[in-house]
């Protein structure tokens, strides 16, 4: 049986989901409002924040992405459980 995730895991995951959601919303908005400079700046600001949060998350819980978009410790962490539908 894979490790049980603790409250801190769910908290950090939720924080990341919140920033990523803002980015999804701004992304779709900008697809139809390409000249809104303020929204583009907001998008870029959140992208920086997202990178920092993802870094913290990956340090504690392993890679978020595959195919070279995240780093791995030894042994290979990507294929470790749990997967998103399991937690």
């Amino acid at each position: 049986m894979a490790k049980q995730m603790d409250a801190a895991y769910y908290h950090l995951l939720h924080e990341l989901q919140a920033v990523d959601f803002v980015l999804v919303e701004l992304n779709l908005y900008l697809d139809t409002h390409p000249n809104d400079l303020k929204a583009i700046e907001e998008y870029n600001r959140n992208a920086v924040k997202r990178k920092e949060l993802a870094c913290t998350y990956e340090e504690k819980y392993g890679p978020l992405m595959h195919f070279g978009h995240s780093y791995s410790k030894y042994p290979w962490q990507w294929a470790e459980e749990p997967w998103p539908w399991q937690v």
Partner: peptide, 21 residues
């Protein structure tokens, strides 16, 4: 067409409600 600069939710609340605006 959505006007620019509409009020937004804070990120956590936006996620909970499913929209930023």
């Amino acid at each position: 067409y959505q006007p620019m600069n509409l009020p937004q939710y804070r990120p956590e609340e936006a996620l909970r409600r499913g929209t930023l605006w």
